[in-house]
Amino acid sequence: MSNPDLEPAARRMAALIGGVSDEMLDRPTPCPDYRLGDLVEHVVVHHFATKAGLRQAVDDAVLTAFEAALAAVDTHGAPAEVSERLNQAVAGIIGGDRAVSDYLGRSLFEATGASQRLFDALTNLVTAGLDDLEEAGLVRPGTDRTWRAYTVLFIVLGPIVLSRQLEARLRTDAFAPDVVSARSAANIDILQHGLFTPDDPRPRM
């Protein structure tokens, strides 16, 4: 785990991590006449030693944010109320800071060892959370533990990975407050009630 004191720095660096190359990290500390790239390099080398160290720090900060937000949700009340509070907690993390959503999208799309560890950690977090909600009587028992976690992740991560394509169709920021609100309402409705009717309402011939 990273030093907690460095997590704010890691969060700020999330938007810049793509511009730091391994070759930059092998060069000597830059002179005081910094350009932006030199400044990024200097911060990475000074605080994290390597780009991998920075990536791990950012991953830890993102996961910590998810864990803290979900742990703070009051799970007492009707399932509809709890699901809305959970949805708002997740939306606050993803929609509250574009650097976080952009970093997640870029990291997960890379399909590297680091991105796999991040996905595994998110999967474990969601799986444990759904297990707790099932135990509390808020999730329908008997659902597939593996695929219900993936389904929730698909809903959460889909707009992150496809944000640019969504913006091209919507002609607005995929994480604008009104867009997040509409998307969240649709997600909650589908998760609570399903998409299809339970029986075919058409008369049988």
Rank of each mutant, 00 (worst) to 15 (best):
G96Y: 02
R35E: 12
I160C: 07
E67K: 02
I160L: 09
R98K: 13
A186Y: 12
T143H: 09
R35W: 05
L170G: 00
I160V: 14
G92L: 01
V43G: 07
D5G: 13
P28H: 02
V152T: 12
T146D: 14
V152G: 07
V20L: 13
V73F: 00
R11L: 11
V43Q: 04
A121F: 02
F154R: 15
R140Q: 11
H42E: 10
G194L: 06
L122Y: 06
G137T: 07
T172D: 06
G113L: 06
M13D: 04
T75C: 01
D22G: 03
A121Y: 03
V156G: 06
P79L: 06
A182E: 11
D200W: 07
Y34A: 03
T64L: 09
L170R: 11
N87D: 14
A168I: 09
G53W: 04
N187Q: 12
L195H: 08
A80G: 13
G92H: 10
D22P: 06
E167K: 00
R35L: 12
R140H: 09
P28M: 05
G129I: 02
V179H: 05
V43K: 04
S181Y: 08
P203C: 05
K51P: 01
L130Y: 07
V58Q: 10
F175P: 03
N187K: 02
D199G: 11
N87W: 01
A149G: 01
Y150F: 15
D38T: 09
D5M: 12
Q56L: 13
Q192Y: 00
L157P: 09
L122R: 11
G142H: 01
F154L: 15
S83T: 08
E167S: 10
Q56F: 09
D60R: 03
R12A: 13
F154I: 15
G19N: 11
T75W: 00
M1N: 12
G142P: 03
L122K: 04
L170T: 10
G158V: 01
G137Q: 00
A57T: 02
F175L: 05
A111H: 13
P201W: 07
E23R: 11
F154A: 15
F175T: 10
I188T: 14
S21Q: 02
S21T: 15
T143A: 12
L133F: 07
K51Y: 01
I155T: 14
N3P: 10
Q192T: 14
A52R: 15
R145S: 06
P159T: 06
D5W: 01
A72Y: 03
W147R: 13
S101G: 03
R85W: 02
R164V: 11
A71E: 12
T50M: 05
D60W: 08
D26N: 12
A9G: 00
V44K: 03
L39M: 12
R106M: 12
I188Y: 00
R85P: 09
R11T: 14
M24K: 10
T197M: 08
I190A: 15
S101F: 01
I160W: 05
A65L: 08
E23Q: 12
P203Y: 02
R27T: 11
P30R: 06
E67G: 01
H47Y: 10
R11G: 06
T127Y: 11
D5P: 03
R171W: 13
H46S: 15
